[in-house]
Write a protein that binds this DNA or RNA. Structure first.
Lengths: 215, 215
DNA sequence: TTTAGCTAATCAATCGTTTGATTAATTTTG
DNA sequence: CAAAATTAATCAAACGATTGATTAGCTAAA
């Protein structure tokens, strides 16, 4: 049946995403992925053509959910610049933490020095979110919400970098936090709201010099 | 000659460091490395025992410079907690930006989910710097220099994460900054001091609620 | 002669991929 | 409708290539 076929492909993609993110593209073997997914090895080539085709398919599947991540927040006329930024952070943390194994995959690919269509494609997608935040920051400076001499570009690096650090170096951040961050429950119930609160306090202090700890 | 041997080993390590950081541990082959270095393949095993031994040797060579990176700052009795932290940031940015290809290597390895002696070793090394900063932050809270309700653990993630983001995603951060960050001159003369200033303002605002822009 | 440095040749293991055969499902034909 | 033909999905087995590692033998210096 057609539906079963799609489900099966989806299942392979789920497994492959996990294995690739754990071991890297070169570190993961097709035998490993097919074995983990419980399908015959040949099915990977049958469905996706090649190992690289499988890798690409993982990205194709996720592109849409990333393109709409932060957009349309900046266009709301009824929100202050700070509220927009706060909402961006909430959205971003919510969205990214659940897709953390895919995020690791992206970041590892981006750190490679090889030029490829995939790298360019990922860059383009990630820049949408970057520019959205930049727009809000610039607007906030213009309307006096934020200090005029803030380093907009490095603020962006801090926003994305803080989250990336936690996700990309699970061994380190688990030691820092005193809890295995691969624990989904801990992540969802504890870490996620904590990161939201922290990021907002950090940014508010820097952008507005107002360390309001009640919010 | 003994000196030639050492030079040769060092040369192999230089080449291997570059190849590993470009292609990852699994993506780089021993033939590739030996070919690039202009030595016989068997020499890698002769000198370093194995591919992993070679990989480890790259780290061994750098360990000393990393272990002494931040230590002894925290023990200075004549410095305020803030000055210690500020000095840590200066040292860290100075040291890390020049070794950025080695840094990418470390971060890529750390984002893998495979348990290995190497991962444990790197974790151990990186934790030295982490704990040094944590010590300073805790001390600062204790003596009243910093707010008592700051999120120490996530501050650490921001310090290391901001820098990692810039180094690990050169394509993105180049677009953000409007300049190729692989340009050594730009990095050294412009970005490095800028990151120092930014990080200190950001942290001061959050930790001390004092956005003193003159420092 | 002895020994450390070095090399070409080769090892078994694993890689991604392909093959031909088999089964299940669907369509066409009589 | 039933039988035959066709297509799609799946499998075990094997492919050639490449992997990291080892071997035995060579070279040059002490």
């Amino acid at each position: 049946m057609d539906k079963d076929k799609i489900d099966k492909k989806d299942h392979i993609l789920d497994v492959a995403e996990k294995v690739f993110s754990d071991l890297g593209f070169d570190g993961a073997s097709t035998r490993m992925i097919s074995g983990e997914a419980g399908v015959n090895m040949a099915m990977l080539n049958y469905y996706f053509g090649s190992k690289e085709g499988l890798f690409l398919a993982i990205f194709e599947r996720k592109i849409s959910s990333f393109q709409t991540l932060l957009q349309n927040i900046g266009n709301d006329e009824n929100m202050s610049s700070w509220d927009k930024l706060a909402k961006c952070i909430d959205n971003y943390v919510d969205r990214i933490i659940v897709n953390n194994c895919f995020q690791k995959l992206i970041n590892r690919e981006m750190s490679m020095n090889k030029r490829s269509d995939l790298s360019d494609k990922i860059t383009q997608i990630l820049m949408v979110n970057v520019l959205e935040i930049k727009k809000i920051l610039d607007e906030g400076i213009k309307n006096g919400s934020f200090f005029k001499d803030i380093d907009t570009q490095l603020v962006i690096a801090s926003i994305f970098g803080t989250k990336n650090y936690i996700i990309n170096t699970p061994n380190i951040s688990s030691l820092i936090l005193g809890h295995d961050i691969r624990d989904e429950k801990f992540l969802e119930e504890h870490l996620k709201p904590r990161i939201k609160i922290y990021m907002k306090r950090l940014l508010k202090a820097y952008l507005m010099n107002d360390n309001d700890n009640t919010k």
